[in-house]
Design a binder for these strands. Structure first.
Lengths: 331, 331
DNA sequence: GTTATTTAAGAGAGCGATCTCTCAACGCGG
DNA sequence: CCGCGTTGAGAGATCGCTCTCTTAAATAAC
C-alpha cells in the first residue's frame, strides 16, 4: 500500500519515466495527447512527487527556516511583533511555494541545534528574527554560506541583508510631536540597551531633545508592562514636574499609564504619553494611546523579497521602512 | 565547494561508507579505534548528513506539520491561544528532535496546498489546530493515512485522537461560582456556535442554570472584543435587572466590561463577570477578571505525546485536561 | 530523393544516504 | 588441527526522482 511513484505513473500512461517527469515539472516539450495521458495517470493514481527524492537531485528543498532567536516566553506572549511577523512571512512564503520551518532558538543548546539543522541543508534559506545584540546566530549562520536575511538590523556588523523599521526616525517623530504640542519636560522610558530597537529609539529621543534645548530624563525598562510601570514611578520620583513621556514600546506605555493613574496624574492633561509599535491594545487603553505604527506585515514581506533576491541575484540592500505617528488621545 | 558526503568521510577515515554510516547512526558494532577515526574525519570535514538522502531510504523525515486551520487574521492577533500552543508544541517537538513545519490553512486554496504537502510525505505526522466545526481538514487529512492529532475536539465525528480542555466542565464551574455567590439573574455571552468551544461552553452554562432553576439569558458573540461589547449592550437591553454574566472567552469579557462601565454598572457590585481562558490581559482589566484557566502549554505537550504514541503504537485516547477557576475581582 | 535540422521521447547515470547480505578474522572446544 | 559460532567491516542494491545524452521521427532544405 505504498504511495505511487513516477515509475508507476509512467507505466500507466505508457511512457518513460523521463517523459512523466517532464509533465510533472511543466516542461513544454511534450506532445499534448501524451501530456494528457500522463496527467490522467497522475490523477488516477493520486500521485504526489516524493520531495526527498526530488531535493536529493535538485539540491533544493523549497523550504526556508524562520528562526526566532529569543528567550522562550517573551516571544509570543505579550509582544505581538513576533506572531505578526511570523504570520506575514508565512503567508508571503507560501505564495511563492516555499514551506516555512519554524525554529525557536531560545538557548545555547537550541542555537547549536539550529546551526546543525541549517548546515544539514534542510532549507534553502533562513529568515532570522533576532532582536538582541549579543545574539551569536547572525554571524554563525552567515558563516555557513546559506542565504540569510534578518528582521531587524543585526547588532554585530555582519554582512547580511536586513529589514528594519526606522526606529530613530520614529522616535524623533514621536518626541517632536510632544515638543510641538508645547511639552516642556519630556522624559523617556527606554527599552533594553542590548537591543537595537532599544538603542535606536533612545537615540531618536536624544536627537530631538538636544535640538530643542531640553534636558533628557531617562529611565530604562525591558519592554514589559511591569518594567514600564516601575520606570514611570521612578521618573515621577526623579522629576515630579515632568509633563510628557516618550515610551519606547506600547507594552511599557500601558504600564506607565497605570502608574500615572495611581499617582493621580491625568493623561494627557498633566502628562502626555507617546508609545511605540501601535499594538492592538493601544487602542483600548485609558485614554487610547498615541503611538508610532510600523508595518510589521510589510516588513515581513520585504524580508521575503530580500531572501528571494538572495536566491536569484537581485539587489540586497537593507530595507528601512518608515514609521507613522498615530495620534490618539494620550498625547 | 560542495558539502562533504559520507563517502568523503569514509575515504578520509580509511573505511567503507557502510562503516561510516554505522558510526553516524550510533551503532555499537564498530571497533573503538575505527569509530574514533571516523568521528575525527567527520569533525575535520564538518560533515552533516544530507537529510534528503537519508529520508529517501528511511521513509522518515523527522519533521511534523503544525497546521493552523483558521482564517488568517484572527490566528495570531488578539487570541494568544494560537501563539502559546504553537510555541509549546515547538518546544516539545524539538525536545524529541522533530522539526516543526508551520502551515497556515486559511483559505480553501491553502487547504489544498496543505493536503498536497502532507500527501507528499514531507512530514511524519500532523498536528492540527482547528477550531471551526465546518473545517474540512480533519477528515481530509485522516483520509491520507498520515498520523494526525488535533488540538480541540473535531466537530465532525472523525477518528483522530485529540486534546481538549474541559469546556463544559469549566463553564459549569464558572456559572456555579456565580450561583454560589448569590447571583440570581445570570446571563451569558456565548461564543460562535460553529465552534466546539462556543457550543460546549454554552452547554455548560445551560446545565448549571437548569439544575439551579434559573432562566437562561443568552447573547451570542464571535469571541472578539467588539462582539462582546455589543452582546453586553444587548443583554442589558433585554434584561436590565441581570446581576451576572458568564462570558465564553476573555476577549469578549473585556468588551463586556467596557459596555457595563458605559452603562454605569459597577463590577462586581451590580454585575458579576466571569470570563474564560485566562489570557494575559485578564489580569489587567478594571477590575481584574475572574476567569477559567486552561493549560494551553500542557495541552500542546499532550498533543505531542499523542502523536508520538501514534508513531509507536501507544494509547491514543483523547485527552481532556481540566480547567481551573481563577477568582479575581470581577466575580 | 537525399541530407540537414528540428522536435519528441527514451535510456541510464547519478544524487547521498541506509541496510541487507556476504565474508574474513578470530577464539575456542573437541 | 579442524570446524563452528561470533563479531566487525565491506560490497552493492536500493530509495524516487531529475537531467543529460542519445536516438528516432518528422519536417525542411536543396
Amino acid at each position: 500500500m505504498r504511495r505511487p511513484t513516477l515509475e508507476a505513473v509512467a507505466a500507466r500512461a505508457g511512457v518513460s519515466r523521463a517523459t512523466a517527469s517532464r509533465v510533472v515539472n511543466g516542461q513544454t516539450t511534450v506532445a499534448p495527447h501524451i501530456r494528457d495521458a500522463v496527467l490522467r495517470a497522475i490523477d488516477e493514481l493520486g500521485y504526489v512527487p516524493n520531495s526527498a527524492a526530488r531535493s536529493l537531485v535538485t539540491q533544493r528543498t523549497d523550504s526556508v527556516a524562520l528562526v526566532v532567536s529569543e528567550p522562550g516566553t517573551r516571544v509570543f506572549s505579550e509582544d505581538p511583533l513576533f506572531s505578526t511577523a511570523i504570520r506575514s512571512a508565512s503567508v508571503e512564503l507560501e505564495a511563492i511555494n516555499k514551506q516555512v520551518v519554524l525554529m525557536l532558538a531560545s538557548s545555547p543548546k537550541s542555537h547549536a541545534r539550529v546551526e546543525r539543522y541549517i548546515a544539514g541543508g534542510h532549507v534553502d534559506g533562513v529568515m532570522l528574527l533576532s532582536m538582541h545584540g549579543a545574539d551569536p546566530l547572525p554571524s554563525a549562520l552567515s558563516r555557513l554560506r546559506v542565504p540569510v536575511v534578518s528582521y531587524g538590523r543585526p547588532a554585530v556588523p555582519v554582512d547580511i541583508p536586513y529589514v528594519d523599521n526606522d526606529n530613530v526616525g520614529g522616535a524623533e517623530a514621536g518626541v517632536r510631536h510632544l515638543v510641538e504640542t508645547g511639552r516642556r519636560r519630556i522624559a523617556t522610558i527606554a527599552g533594553p540597551q542590548d537591543m537595537i530597537a532599544g538603542q535606536d529609539r533612545l537615540a531618536g529621543y536624544r536627537n530631538v531633545l538636544r535640538d530643542s534645548d531640553r534636558r533628557s530624563i531617562v529611565a530604562v525598562g525591558d519592554f514589559t508592562r511591569e518594567s514600564g510601570a516601575i520606570a514611570m514611578r521612578q521618573l515621577l520620583g526623579d522629576d515630579p514636574g515632568l509633563d510628557a513621556v516618550f515610551v519606547a514600546n506600547d507594552m511599557m506605555a500601558v504600564g506607565a499609564l497605570q502608574s500615572l493613574r495611581q499617582a493621580g496624574r491625568r493623561v494627557p492633561d498633566d502628562v502626555a504619553v507617546v508609545g511605540f509599535d501601535d499594538v492592538e491594545a493601544a487602542k483600548y487603553t485609558e485614554p487610547p494611546l498615541t503611538t508610532l505604527r510600523h508595518p510589521i506585515a510589510e516588513q515581513a514581506a520585504a524580508m521575503v523579497r530580500l531572501l528571494l533576491n538572495l536566491f536569484e541575484g537581485g539587489p540586497t540592500e537593507p530595507i528601512i521602512l518608515p514609521t507613522e505617528l498615530v495620534i490618539r488621545e494620550s498625547a
